[in-house]
Computed example of a mutant assay.
Amino acid sequence: MLIDLIQLEFIMVLLVAAGIYLRRRSVITDEGRDCLSDLLTMLILPCNIFLSFEGNTDTSALKSSLLTVIISVLVMLCTAILGKVIYRHREERKAKVFRYGLVNSNALFIGLPIIQSLLGDAGVLQLSMYMIFVRMFCWSYGLSLYTGVKSDWKGSFKRLLTHPCMIAAALGVAAMVTGIRLPAFLDRTLQYVSSCLMALSMLLIGVVLSEIKLKEVFRGDVWRFTALRLGVMPGIVFGLCKLCGVPYIVTATCTLVSGMPAASLTAVLAARYHGDSELGALLVAVSTILSAVTIPLWFMILQ
Protein backbone atom coordinates (compact mmCIF):
# COMPACT_ATOMS: atom_id res chain seq x y z
CA MET A 1 0.00 0.00 0.00
CA LEU A 2 2.72 2.44 0.99
CA ILE A 3 4.65 1.74 -2.23
CA ASP A 4 1.52 2.34 -4.34
CA LEU A 5 0.86 5.58 -2.49
CA ILE A 6 4.43 6.80 -2.96
CA GLN A 7 4.30 5.95 -6.67
CA LEU A 8 1.07 7.88 -7.04
CA GLU A 9 2.59 10.84 -5.21
CA PHE A 10 5.59 10.79 -7.60
CA ILE A 11 3.31 10.71 -10.64
CA MET A 12 1.38 13.73 -9.39
CA VAL A 13 4.57 15.61 -8.52
CA LEU A 14 6.00 14.98 -12.01
CA LEU A 15 2.81 16.23 -13.66
CA VAL A 16 2.84 19.35 -11.50
CA ALA A 17 6.53 19.88 -12.34
CA ALA A 18 5.67 19.60 -16.04
CA GLY A 19 3.05 22.32 -15.60
CA ILE A 20 5.56 24.59 -13.87
CA TYR A 21 8.11 24.01 -16.63
CA LEU A 22 5.63 24.65 -19.46
CA ARG A 23 4.40 27.86 -17.82
CA ARG A 24 7.89 29.23 -17.20
CA ARG A 25 8.86 28.41 -20.80
CA SER A 26 5.71 30.29 -21.91
CA VAL A 27 4.39 27.20 -23.66
CA ILE A 28 1.25 27.66 -21.56
CA THR A 29 0.31 31.36 -21.59
CA ASP A 30 -2.33 33.21 -19.57
CA GLU A 31 -4.82 32.49 -22.34
CA GLY A 32 -3.73 28.85 -22.34
CA ARG A 33 -4.30 28.62 -18.60
CA ASP A 34 -7.87 29.92 -18.99
CA CYS A 35 -8.45 27.56 -21.90
CA LEU A 36 -7.17 24.63 -19.83
CA SER A 37 -9.48 25.41 -16.91
CA ASP A 38 -12.47 25.79 -19.27
CA LEU A 39 -11.66 22.49 -20.97
CA LEU A 40 -11.53 20.72 -17.62
CA THR A 41 -14.77 22.16 -16.21
CA MET A 42 -16.85 22.13 -19.40
CA LEU A 43 -15.88 18.80 -20.98
CA ILE A 44 -13.51 16.52 -19.10
CA LEU A 45 -15.08 16.83 -15.64
CA PRO A 46 -18.66 16.21 -16.84
CA CYS A 47 -17.50 13.01 -18.56
CA ASN A 48 -15.70 11.89 -15.41
CA ILE A 49 -18.67 12.68 -13.17
CA PHE A 50 -21.11 10.74 -15.34
CA LEU A 51 -18.85 7.68 -15.50
CA SER A 52 -18.27 7.75 -11.74
CA PHE A 53 -21.99 7.05 -11.24
CA GLU A 54 -22.49 4.65 -14.13
CA GLY A 55 -22.07 1.03 -13.13
CA ASN A 56 -20.58 1.82 -9.71
CA THR A 57 -23.58 1.01 -7.56
CA ASP A 58 -27.22 0.03 -7.78
CA THR A 59 -30.30 0.38 -5.59
CA SER A 60 -29.78 -3.00 -3.90
CA ALA A 61 -26.24 -1.99 -2.92
CA LEU A 62 -27.64 1.29 -1.64
CA LYS A 63 -29.99 -0.57 0.72
CA SER A 64 -27.26 -2.90 2.02
CA SER A 65 -24.86 -0.03 2.71
CA LEU A 66 -27.33 2.51 4.05
CA LEU A 67 -25.17 3.23 7.11
CA THR A 68 -22.27 4.38 4.92
CA VAL A 69 -24.59 6.70 3.00
CA ILE A 70 -25.94 8.18 6.24
CA ILE A 71 -22.40 8.81 7.52
CA SER A 72 -21.44 10.52 4.25
CA VAL A 73 -24.46 12.83 4.52
CA LEU A 74 -23.58 13.77 8.10
CA VAL A 75 -19.90 14.33 7.22
CA MET A 76 -20.74 16.60 4.27
CA LEU A 77 -23.26 18.68 6.20
CA CYS A 78 -20.97 19.05 9.22
CA THR A 79 -18.01 19.92 6.99
CA ALA A 80 -20.01 22.63 5.21
CA ILE A 81 -21.06 24.14 8.55
CA LEU A 82 -17.49 23.90 9.88
CA GLY A 83 -16.16 25.73 6.84
CA LYS A 84 -18.73 28.48 7.21
CA VAL A 85 -17.85 29.01 10.86
CA ILE A 86 -14.06 28.77 10.66
CA TYR A 87 -13.65 30.97 7.58
CA ARG A 88 -16.47 33.45 8.22
CA HIS A 89 -14.03 36.35 8.69
CA ARG A 90 -11.83 35.57 5.68
CA GLU A 91 -11.97 37.45 2.41
CA GLU A 92 -14.65 35.78 0.28
CA ARG A 93 -12.23 35.08 -2.58
CA LYS A 94 -10.11 33.00 -0.19
CA ALA A 95 -12.89 31.67 2.04
CA LYS A 96 -14.65 29.81 -0.76
CA VAL A 97 -11.41 28.03 -1.67
CA PHE A 98 -10.88 26.87 1.93
CA ARG A 99 -14.52 25.76 2.20
CA TYR A 100 -14.46 23.80 -1.03
CA GLY A 101 -11.17 22.16 -0.05
CA LEU A 102 -12.79 20.96 3.18
CA VAL A 103 -15.86 19.60 1.44
CA ASN A 104 -14.23 17.80 -1.49
CA SER A 105 -11.38 15.35 -0.95
CA ASN A 106 -9.28 13.49 -3.51
CA ALA A 107 -11.21 10.25 -3.07
CA LEU A 108 -10.96 9.39 -6.77
CA PHE A 109 -7.23 9.41 -7.62
CA ILE A 110 -5.77 8.72 -4.19
CA GLY A 111 -8.67 7.27 -2.19
CA LEU A 112 -9.80 4.57 -4.60
CA PRO A 113 -6.44 2.75 -5.06
CA ILE A 114 -5.70 3.01 -1.33
CA ILE A 115 -9.09 1.61 -0.30
CA GLN A 116 -8.72 -1.15 -2.89
CA SER A 117 -5.28 -2.05 -1.56
CA LEU A 118 -6.15 -1.91 2.14
CA LEU A 119 -9.77 -3.08 2.33
CA GLY A 120 -10.36 -4.98 -0.91
CA ASP A 121 -13.64 -5.19 -2.80
CA ALA A 122 -15.71 -4.71 0.36
CA GLY A 123 -14.01 -1.36 0.92
CA VAL A 124 -14.48 -0.32 -2.71
CA LEU A 125 -18.22 -1.01 -2.40
CA GLN A 126 -18.41 1.12 0.75
CA LEU A 127 -16.41 3.86 -0.97
CA SER A 128 -18.84 3.82 -3.89
CA MET A 129 -21.76 4.17 -1.50
CA TYR A 130 -20.01 6.93 0.43
CA MET A 131 -19.41 8.89 -2.77
CA ILE A 132 -23.04 8.88 -3.96
CA PHE A 133 -24.11 11.82 -1.78
CA VAL A 134 -20.63 13.36 -1.82
CA ARG A 135 -20.70 13.75 -5.62
CA MET A 136 -24.16 15.32 -5.60
CA PHE A 137 -23.22 17.60 -2.70
CA CYS A 138 -19.95 18.75 -4.28
CA TRP A 139 -21.67 19.55 -7.57
CA SER A 140 -24.49 21.46 -5.92
CA TYR A 141 -23.32 23.18 -2.73
CA GLY A 142 -19.62 22.89 -3.62
CA LEU A 143 -20.03 24.41 -7.06
CA SER A 144 -22.26 27.17 -5.67
CA LEU A 145 -19.34 28.28 -3.45
CA TYR A 146 -17.55 29.39 -6.62
CA THR A 147 -20.44 30.42 -8.86
CA GLY A 148 -22.45 32.12 -6.08
CA VAL A 149 -26.20 31.95 -5.41
CA LYS A 150 -26.67 35.21 -3.55
CA SER A 151 -27.67 38.53 -5.10
CA ASP A 152 -29.31 37.38 -8.33
CA TRP A 153 -30.25 34.07 -6.76
CA LYS A 154 -32.73 33.03 -9.45
CA GLY A 155 -30.25 33.59 -12.26
CA SER A 156 -27.41 32.06 -10.25
CA PHE A 157 -29.48 29.01 -9.36
CA LYS A 158 -30.43 28.55 -13.00
CA ARG A 159 -26.79 28.77 -14.08
CA LEU A 160 -25.87 26.25 -11.38
CA LEU A 161 -28.53 23.77 -12.53
CA THR A 162 -27.53 24.13 -16.18
CA HIS A 163 -23.80 23.79 -15.50
CA PRO A 164 -22.35 20.83 -17.46
CA CYS A 165 -21.09 19.21 -14.24
CA MET A 166 -24.52 19.39 -12.61
CA ILE A 167 -26.19 17.99 -15.72
CA ALA A 168 -23.64 15.17 -15.79
CA ALA A 169 -24.31 14.40 -12.10
CA ALA A 170 -28.08 14.29 -12.68
CA LEU A 171 -27.69 12.01 -15.70
CA GLY A 172 -25.26 9.83 -13.76
CA VAL A 173 -27.73 9.35 -10.90
CA ALA A 174 -30.46 8.49 -13.42
CA ALA A 175 -28.21 5.93 -15.11
CA MET A 176 -27.25 4.41 -11.76
CA VAL A 177 -30.85 4.07 -10.53
CA THR A 178 -32.40 2.88 -13.80
CA GLY A 179 -29.54 0.66 -14.90
CA ILE A 180 -29.56 2.20 -18.37
CA ARG A 181 -26.19 1.97 -20.11
CA LEU A 182 -24.80 4.02 -22.98
CA PRO A 183 -23.89 2.38 -26.30
CA ALA A 184 -20.37 0.96 -26.17
CA PHE A 185 -18.88 3.49 -28.60
CA LEU A 186 -20.29 6.43 -26.65
CA ASP A 187 -19.22 4.99 -23.31
CA ARG A 188 -15.65 4.50 -24.56
CA THR A 189 -15.62 8.05 -25.93
CA LEU A 190 -16.46 9.38 -22.47
CA GLN A 191 -13.78 7.15 -20.95
CA TYR A 192 -11.11 8.48 -23.31
CA VAL A 193 -12.03 12.07 -22.45
CA SER A 194 -12.30 11.33 -18.72
CA SER A 195 -8.85 9.71 -18.64
CA CYS A 196 -7.31 13.15 -19.28
CA LEU A 197 -8.59 14.51 -15.95
CA MET A 198 -5.67 13.69 -13.66
CA ALA A 199 -2.96 14.76 -16.10
CA LEU A 200 -4.56 18.06 -17.09
CA SER A 201 -5.68 19.01 -13.57
CA MET A 202 -2.16 18.41 -12.21
CA LEU A 203 -0.68 20.40 -15.12
CA LEU A 204 -3.01 23.28 -14.28
CA ILE A 205 -1.95 23.16 -10.63
CA GLY A 206 1.68 23.32 -11.80
CA VAL A 207 0.88 26.35 -13.96
CA VAL A 208 -0.64 28.11 -10.94
CA LEU A 209 2.20 27.09 -8.61
CA SER A 210 4.78 28.47 -11.07
CA GLU A 211 3.67 31.96 -10.06
CA ILE A 212 3.99 31.34 -6.31
CA LYS A 213 7.07 32.07 -4.23
CA LEU A 214 8.54 29.15 -2.26
CA LYS A 215 7.95 30.84 1.10
CA GLU A 216 4.19 30.76 0.38
CA VAL A 217 4.25 26.99 0.91
CA PHE A 218 4.84 27.57 4.64
CA ARG A 219 1.85 29.86 5.16
CA GLY A 220 0.17 29.25 8.51
CA ASP A 221 -3.37 29.18 7.12
CA VAL A 222 -2.41 26.51 4.57
CA TRP A 223 -0.91 24.27 7.24
CA ARG A 224 -3.86 24.83 9.59
CA PHE A 225 -6.18 23.80 6.78
CA THR A 226 -4.05 20.71 6.12
CA ALA A 227 -4.19 19.73 9.80
CA LEU A 228 -7.97 20.08 9.69
CA ARG A 229 -8.30 18.15 6.42
CA LEU A 230 -5.92 15.28 7.25
CA GLY A 231 -6.13 15.09 11.04
CA VAL A 232 -9.19 16.63 12.68
CA MET A 233 -11.87 15.52 10.21
CA PRO A 234 -10.91 11.82 10.06
CA GLY A 235 -10.36 11.90 13.82
CA ILE A 236 -13.94 13.04 14.42
CA VAL A 237 -15.33 10.44 12.02
CA PHE A 238 -13.25 7.66 13.58
CA GLY A 239 -14.19 8.64 17.14
CA LEU A 240 -17.93 8.81 16.44
CA CYS A 241 -17.91 5.54 14.49
CA LYS A 242 -16.15 3.75 17.36
CA LEU A 243 -18.48 5.35 19.90
CA CYS A 244 -21.56 4.18 17.98
CA GLY A 245 -20.23 0.67 17.34
CA VAL A 246 -20.13 1.02 13.55
CA PRO A 247 -18.77 -2.10 11.76
CA TYR A 248 -15.06 -2.08 10.99
CA ILE A 249 -15.30 -1.97 7.18
CA VAL A 250 -17.60 1.07 7.32
CA THR A 251 -15.51 2.79 10.00
CA ALA A 252 -12.27 2.20 8.09
CA THR A 253 -13.64 3.37 4.74
CA CYS A 254 -15.30 6.51 6.09
CA THR A 255 -12.27 7.45 8.22
CA LEU A 256 -9.76 7.02 5.40
CA VAL A 257 -11.88 8.84 2.81
CA SER A 258 -12.54 11.78 5.15
CA GLY A 259 -8.76 12.06 5.68
CA MET A 260 -7.83 12.36 2.01
CA PRO A 261 -6.10 15.55 0.74
CA ALA A 262 -7.98 18.39 -0.94
CA ALA A 263 -9.28 17.53 -4.40
CA SER A 264 -7.42 18.99 -7.37
CA LEU A 265 -10.72 20.65 -8.31
CA THR A 266 -10.12 23.06 -5.43
CA ALA A 267 -7.54 24.78 -7.63
CA VAL A 268 -9.20 24.03 -10.99
CA LEU A 269 -12.51 25.67 -10.05
CA ALA A 270 -10.75 28.58 -8.35
CA ALA A 271 -8.89 29.25 -11.61
CA ARG A 272 -12.11 28.96 -13.62
CA TYR A 273 -14.31 31.16 -11.39
CA HIS A 274 -11.80 33.83 -10.32
CA GLY A 275 -11.17 32.53 -6.82
CA ASP A 276 -7.72 32.56 -5.23
CA SER A 277 -6.22 29.92 -7.54
CA GLU A 278 -2.76 30.25 -5.96
CA LEU A 279 -4.24 29.40 -2.56
CA GLY A 280 -6.15 26.48 -4.11
CA ALA A 281 -2.97 25.08 -5.64
CA LEU A 282 -1.15 25.39 -2.31
CA LEU A 283 -3.92 23.56 -0.44
CA VAL A 284 -3.84 20.72 -2.96
CA ALA A 285 -0.04 20.47 -3.10
CA VAL A 286 0.68 20.63 0.66
CA SER A 287 -2.20 18.34 1.73
CA THR A 288 -1.33 15.79 -0.98
CA ILE A 289 2.33 15.59 0.03
CA LEU A 290 1.58 15.28 3.76
CA SER A 291 -1.13 12.66 3.13
CA ALA A 292 1.67 10.20 2.30
CA VAL A 293 2.42 10.30 6.04
CA THR A 294 -1.05 10.70 7.58
CA ILE A 295 -2.91 8.01 5.59
CA PRO A 296 -0.62 5.15 6.73
CA LEU A 297 -0.87 6.51 10.29
CA TRP A 298 -4.67 6.43 10.17
CA PHE A 299 -4.60 2.86 8.90
CA MET A 300 -2.34 1.87 11.78
CA ILE A 301 -4.81 3.46 14.21
CA LEU A 302 -7.69 1.62 12.54
CA GLN A 303 -5.82 -1.65 12.98
Results as ranks from 00 to 15, higher is better:
residue 2 L to W: 11
residue 4 D to V: 04
residue 6 I to H: 02
residue 8 L to H: 04
residue 9 E to M: 15
residue 15 L to Q: 10
residue 19 G to R: 01
residue 20 I to C: 14
residue 23 R to E: 03
residue 25 R to W: 08
residue 27 V to G: 03
residue 30 D to A: 08
residue 31 E to A: 09
residue 31 E to T: 09
residue 32 G to S: 13
residue 39 L to D: 00
residue 42 M to I: 08
residue 42 M to P: 00
residue 47 C to S: 15
residue 47 C to V: 03
residue 51 L to H: 00
residue 56 N to K: 09
residue 57 T to R: 06
residue 59 T to L: 15
residue 61 A to I: 07
residue 62 L to E: 02
residue 64 S to Y: 01
residue 66 L to Y: 06
residue 66 L to N: 09
residue 66 L to T: 02
residue 68 T to F: 01
residue 72 S to I: 08
residue 78 C to S: 13
residue 80 A to Y: 11
residue 81 I to L: 15
residue 85 V to L: 14
residue 87 Y to E: 05
residue 88 R to S: 15
residue 91 E to D: 13
residue 92 E to A: 13
residue 95 A to S: 11
residue 100 Y to R: 03
residue 101 G to S: 08
residue 104 N to L: 00
residue 107 A to S: 12
residue 107 A to L: 11
residue 109 F to L: 12
residue 111 G to Y: 02
residue 112 L to P: 06
residue 114 I to N: 06
residue 117 S to D: 01
residue 117 S to H: 06
residue 119 L to A: 07
residue 122 A to G: 11
residue 125 L to M: 12
residue 134 V to E: 03
residue 134 V to F: 12
residue 135 R to N: 13
residue 136 M to G: 07
residue 137 F to K: 00
residue 145 L to Q: 04
residue 146 Y to I: 01
residue 147 T to K: 11
residue 149 V to D: 02
residue 150 K to E: 11
residue 154 K to Q: 12
residue 158 K to F: 14
residue 160 L to D: 01
residue 161 L to P: 07
residue 163 H to Q: 07
residue 164 P to L: 11
residue 164 P to W: 09
residue 166 M to W: 05
residue 166 M to Y: 11
residue 168 A to N: 01
residue 168 A to C: 10
residue 168 A to G: 07
residue 169 A to I: 02
residue 172 G to V: 07
residue 173 V to N: 02
residue 177 V to K: 05
residue 177 V to Y: 14
residue 181 R to K: 15
residue 182 L to A: 10
residue 186 L to P: 05
residue 187 D to L: 14
residue 198 M to D: 03
residue 198 M to R: 09
residue 208 V to N: 05
residue 209 L to N: 08
residue 210 S to E: 05
residue 212 I to Y: 03
residue 217 V to K: 02
residue 219 R to V: 01
residue 220 G to R: 14
residue 223 W to H: 12
residue 223 W to I: 04
residue 225 F to A: 00
residue 226 T to K: 07
residue 227 A to I: 04
residue 229 R to Q: 06
residue 241 C to P: 04
residue 247 P to L: 14
residue 249 I to Q: 08
residue 255 T to Q: 05
residue 263 A to Q: 01
residue 267 A to W: 07
residue 269 L to I: 13
residue 273 Y to W: 07
residue 276 D to C: 04
residue 277 S to T: 00
residue 278 E to G: 15
residue 284 V to W: 03
residue 286 V to D: 02
residue 287 S to M: 04
residue 293 V to I: 15
residue 293 V to E: 13
residue 294 T to H: 03
residue 299 F to Y: 14
residue 303 Q to V: 09
